[in-house]
Amino acid sequence: MLKTSCSALLAGVLALHGIQASAQETMTGAGATFPYPVYSQWADDYQDAKGIGLNYQAIGSGGGIKQITAKTVTFGASDAPLKKDELDEHGLMQWPMIMGGVVPVLNLPGTEKNSLKLDGETLADIYAGKITHWDDAAIADLNPDVDLPDTAITPVYRAEGSGTNFLFTHYLSQVNDEFADTIGEGKSVAWPAGVGAKANAGVAKQVAETEGAIGYVEFAYAKQNDLDHIRLRNHDGEYVEPSSDSFKAAAANADWSNAPGFYLVLTDQVGADSWPITGASFILMHKQVEDPAAAKRVLEFFDWAYANGGDAANELDYVPMPENVADQVRDSWGDIEGPQGESIWP
């Protein structure tokens, strides 16, 4: 409730601010929290370079979708892509802007840090409440060298609807059919066991305080806080470490050109080095815009970000989109039209 009222207040303040700012050529957007750090870094750099500011409200993917359908912002942002028919329903288009990964983290005293190995099947069974102790045979088989304690497993998950939830459940549904049937993928799902905590920080804290807990957070958060993470077995059967490189490896094999409306979730990708829970965060815009000047400003910003934002993204532990994907995105912008049907880009 507090969150809603806060964001309402924020929206109000920003709306007021927006009236003044439009004169100074400001861009407005709202949505996902996951890419917020990198968007705001880009916005700062862009302000320095071009003198155009960005008002981005990190209110969550759902809020972003609501605001863009209501046309109160020029662009929306969502961690989970919309399906083709959802896009068409609201006359929207979307494209991937930045990538990141989700990392399972754990608190299991007696094991070496960052050493525990799991595969997707087992991870799904843990989260389905079917594997309840760390010395379960399924885990022991994957870790023959580790002396596993008989500690109970407490799965920790994100309590509120989030893009991180979507990526994680999407992955588990890919690799475990029973999980797909009983729990399924989504921004908010019903977990049969364990504890729900708020946001990355809440999950990390709950894991840190609970012996035997396992959780999942965004890679940037896990890395910056040096959490004990799990090595996952990917589609090719290799155990990989979460890192920018393993995310890039997953992205490199993605076939964006055959994904209508750029609907593609990069979980369980092929490739020996691919991290299996990788995903992109998406930008949403109307295909037919009412204010072509504002739309053009926003597209110029994203164009600039694809070209110049790589370093900032890497520094913040995000993964920039590969150049060929950026080009495909730029091509798709040709579909955006002004009120008279005129093309806006380039």
């Binding site: 409730m1 507090l2 809603t4 969550g60 509120e160 908010s188 729900g196």
Partner: peptide, 21 residues
């Protein structure tokens, strides 16, 4: 054990919810 309450569930899900949810 863990559970939820009406108010907590609404607070967690309402901001992101649409349609049937």
């Amino acid at each position: 054990g863990q559970g939820t309450s009406i108010a907590a569930l609404i607070a967690n899900q309402f901001p992101e919810a649409d349609g049937a949810q």
